[in-house]
């Protein structure tokens, strides 16, 4: 354990990334509690109020920490909603996409022949399609709901996990201790759950963390094009900000900085975790 804690201290990326990520997580959790328990209820959570009197107030004026947006809502409240919204979306999407990817990737190596071919083709087919184009198409025709958004992002996101799971399963299939497990009479289910999945897990977790920023960006892109699932999406905020660049540049600048910081944090955390888990580097 001593060796590991030393390694954490040396790993600056992991520390900085972890710090940034925990701040954002605390922020979104804090906002969630504030909006559902303190200043609202579960049925009607608190939402930033529109007030045309305070349209496009610059930061630090008239009691607004970060100023206001086009509708006179406090930018801090809007960004807070955006943070909790995009963290929630990215976690949900990554969870489902990685589970689907894991199962399909695993069976495209160890299933029977027709399943192998089907899953392989499916993975490559969806992987090769330009994913954002597909998302735009699906989103514009599925009606813009939260459920539709999650579904679309999962549908376009799973193939990269499937490819990863496939490669890792193939690698582990060639290892000696799998043969050991087989010769001891372990069932296929046991091999899958107790031998292969735990071995894949570290690589998978790193890729999920690195993939979170991708999901956040995809979601915001859809929001930017007017195809998002919520009005608090970062994309909606930025698309609003770009139209009032002359009068209120603070919207674009502040929301870009917050979004950029979250993505830097996630990437640092993922990279650092990979170095930490991989003894070779």
């Amino acid at each position: 354990m001593k060796v590991k804690s030393l390694k954490i201290k040396e790993n600056g990326e992991l520390l900085i990334g972890g710090l940034i990520c925990s701040i954002f997580l605390l922020w979104s959790l804090g906002w969630y509690f504030y909006s559902t328990f303190i200043n609202g209820s579960i049925q009607s959570p608190f939402v930033p109020k529109m007030n045309m009197k305070y349209e496009l107030v610059l930061p630090l004026q008239e009691n607004f920490l970060l100023g206001t947006d086009v509708y006179g809502r406090s930018l801090f409240e809007v960004i807070s909603s955006g943070v909790s919204y995009s963290i929630l979306i990215s976690l949900t999407v990554s969870f489902f996409a990685s589970v689907i990817g894991l199962i399909i990737g695993y069976f495209s190596i160890s299933g029977n022949n027709s399943i192998k071919r089907l899953f392989d083709f499916l993975t490559n087919f969806v992987f090769i399609l330009p994913s954002l184009l597909l998302a735009i198409l699906l989103m514009s025709f599925s009606g813009q709901s939260l459920f539709g958004l999650i579904l679309v992002l999962v549908l376009t996101g799973w193939p990269s996990y499937a490819k990863l799971a496939r490669g890792e399963t193939k690698r582990i299939m060639g290892l000696c201790y799998l043969e050991g497990a087989k010769s001891m009479g372990a069932s296929r289910l046991r091999i899958m759950l107790k031998v292969i999945f735990p071995e894949i897990l570290p690589v998978f977790v790193v890729n999920i963390i690195l993939g979170l920023s991708g999901v956040i960006i995809s979601e915001a892109t859809l929001g930017f094009l007017g195809l998002g699932g919520s009005e608090y999406s970062w994309g909606v905020l930025l698309s609003m900000g770009k139209d009032v660049l002359l009068e209120g540049p603070h919207i674009v600048i502040i929301s870009s900085l917050v979004l950029g910081l979250l993505i830097i944090g996630l990437n640092f955390f993922g990279d650092g975790l990979r170095d930490f888990l991989d003894p070779k580097s």
């Binding site: 960006i217 915001a220 892109t221 930017f224 970062w234 994309g235 930025l238 698309s239 900000g241 770009k242 660049l245 002359l246 540049p249 674009v252 600048i253 929301s255 870009s256 979004l259 950029g260 910081l261 993505i263 830097i264 990437n267």
Partner: peptide, 22 residues
């Protein structure tokens, strides 16, 4: 490169417009 990759196109674009055009 880390900084450049942390700003998606739709936030980089308006920032560049703000710097270069405004």
């Amino acid at each position: 490169s880390i900084l450049a990759l942390s700003f998606p196109i739709f936030s980089l674009g308006p920032i560049l417009v703000y710097i270069f055009s405004v």
